Each structure stands twice: as structure tokens, then as C-alpha cells.
Simulated assay, not measured.
Amino acid sequence: MKKIGAIVAGVLVAVAAFVLYELGVITPDPRSDGGGSASGPMSAPSGEPSAEQALNKLDELRVEEESQASGYDRSAFPHWTSNVQDGCNTREAVLVRSGEGVEVGEDCDITSGTWHSAYDGETFTDPGDLDIDHMVPLKEGWRSGAHEWTTDKREQFANDMESDQLWAVSASSNRSKSDGDPSDWLPPLESMHCEYAVSWIEVKHVWDLSVDPDEEAALREVLASC
């Protein structure tokens, strides 16, 4: 009987709590995981790695001086691959997914749209004003291990739409970046620094590329403030 009484009491408490919640008398803790306990700061949404996750991935990367292997040429990384999505080549597909209100004509001819450059906050309506930036530049990839890859693998890297590798940004910011790593260049928009560092690490981790000591130190410094 005691057990039955406890169950009934528990049910009554739960019903009372529900009624109070519906009346707005009590509100849930926004940090709650749904089980009644606070879980601390909310983590990044699925698909958006947190700074802590990025640090864990950074710890897994090889830290070594950049390779001085000769022979780099952009042609060693064939791009932009044709017909990667709905008849669009890689550049066009990135513009389509990155813009707002994008309209496409025959042969993936982009006729209109609006694009926001994450690196500097500028807005464009002419796709010709945008570059498609490789988060990890092709030459940086070469120095970090891609010189040992096959041409097919380098083509996959140069056209990778699955990771954070390809960004539609202002031509000026892309050319300012050139082939620099985060110890040489960070986006002019400071509010972008955390996301930039997280994305850089994500790409290097996906492609098992190394980081040099200065690059690693710069990434840790950025993530420490995120």
C-alpha cells in the first residue's frame, strides 16, 4: 500500500507542476537538458562545432613545420568540377547555396541574388564581385601534406562542398588572404574570427593535414577568446 501511495503522490505532484507551468507560474531553466538538471552553457547547434570541439580536433592534428616540397601549381588541384549539382559547377553551386533569393537560368547562369561576405560583412548583388575562397588555401594544403596526394584527391579537396572548405566572399578579402594561414591572416570582421578558426581546424581535420607551430598557436589564441 505504501508503494501505491508513493506512486499516487508522485502523479499528483507531476500534475500540479504541469498546471503551474501552463499557468506561467513556473518556467523551465533554459539550460535544462529536459531531465531537470542544468547542463551549463548551451552547446553549438548540430553541424556547428563549438570552440571546445575545435580544440579537441586541433589536439589530434600533427604539428610540424610546413613541407618545402617544390612543384606547387594550382593546376595540381583541378577546379571547378563541372556538374556537381543540378548542372552547376562547383563555383556556381557554392554561389547558389550561399546567396539569398538566387535565381538561376539555363546552364546554371546565375541571374540574380544577394550575397553577404562573412569575412568583411559586405553585401553584393553581382556574383561576379565574389570569389570562392578555399578556407584552407590550395598552396597551404600543398605545404601541409597534399603534395603527397594523387591528383584525384587534390581535386576532391579543391571542390569539397561537404566540409567548411568553400566560402563565397568578397574578392578583396579573398585576395588579401592569399595563401596565408591564421598566423598570417584573419578576417577583417573580428566577430568572424571564432567561426573562421573552427572552420579552418575542421577542414584540416577532415583532410588529415598538418599545422605548423605558429599556425597552431594562432588558432589556440583565437579559440581562447571564443
Rank of each mutant, 00 (worst) to 15 (best):
Gly99Glu: 15
Leu138Phe: 02
His147Trp: 15
Glu195Asn: 14
Thr111Val: 13
Ser117Arg: 01
Leu130Glu: 12
Trp185Cys: 07
Arg91Cys: 10
Gly141Lys: 04
Ser183Phe: 07
Asn159Leu: 10
Val96Gln: 08
Arg97Ile: 13
Ala158Asn: 12
Asp160Leu: 08
Met161Val: 08
Gln156Gly: 00
Met161Glu: 10
Val136Ala: 04
Asp164Tyr: 11
Asn89Met: 03
Arg154Asp: 02
Trp167Val: 11
Arg97Cys: 05
Leu95Ala: 12
Ile132Pro: 03
Phe157Cys: 01
Lys139Gly: 00
Ala146Pro: 09
Lys177Tyr: 04
Ser117Glu: 07
Glu162Phe: 04
Val136Tyr: 05
Gly101Lys: 06
Gln165Lys: 06
Leu138Asp: 03
Ala158Gln: 13
Tyr196Gln: 05
Pro187Ile: 09
Glu100Ile: 10
Ser176Ala: 12
Ser170Cys: 08
Val136Pro: 01
Lys153Ile: 00
Asp109Ser: 14
Gly99Met: 14
Thr123Cys: 07
Asp109Leu: 14
Tyr196Trp: 11
Thr151Arg: 14
Gly113Asp: 12
Asn174Phe: 01
Arg143Pro: 02
Lys153Asn: 09
Asp179Met: 01
Ser163Ala: 05
Leu95Gly: 10
Lys153Cys: 01
Val169Gly: 05
Lys139Met: 03
Asp120Trp: 10
Ser173Ile: 05
Leu189Arg: 13
Gly145Val: 03
Ser191Cys: 01
Gly128Arg: 14
Asp120Met: 06
Val102Asn: 13
Ser173Ala: 15
Thr151Val: 11
Ser170Glu: 05
His134Trp: 02
Lys139Ala: 06
Gly128Ser: 14
Leu166Val: 09
Phe157Thr: 11
Gly101Trp: 06
Pro187Met: 07
Ser176Met: 05
Ser172Cys: 00
Asp179Glu: 08
Val169Cys: 08
Arg97Pro: 03
Tyr119Asp: 15
Ser191Asp: 15
Pro188Glu: 05
Lys139Thr: 04
Thr123Arg: 12
Ser117Val: 00
Trp185Phe: 06
Asp120Cys: 09
Val102Gly: 11
Cys108Trp: 14
Glu140Cys: 00
Pro182Cys: 07
Asp120Asn: 14
His116Gly: 08
Thr90Tyr: 13
Ala168Asn: 09
Ser170Asn: 10
Ala118Lys: 12
Asp129Asn: 15
Phe124Ile: 08
Met192Asn: 11
Ser112Cys: 01
Thr123Asp: 14
Thr114Leu: 10
Leu186Gln: 14
Pro182Thr: 11
His147Val: 01
Asn89Trp: 08
Glu122Gln: 12
Gln156Trp: 02
Lys139Cys: 03
Leu189Lys: 13
Val94Ile: 15
Glu140Tyr: 03
Arg143Phe: 08
Gly180Lys: 00
Glu148Met: 07
Tyr119Phe: 15
Arg154Met: 05
Glu106Cys: 02
Glu122Cys: 02
Glu195Tyr: 01
Met135Tyr: 00
Glu195Ser: 09
Glu122Ser: 10
Leu186Glu: 15
Asp129Thr: 04
Lys177Asn: 06
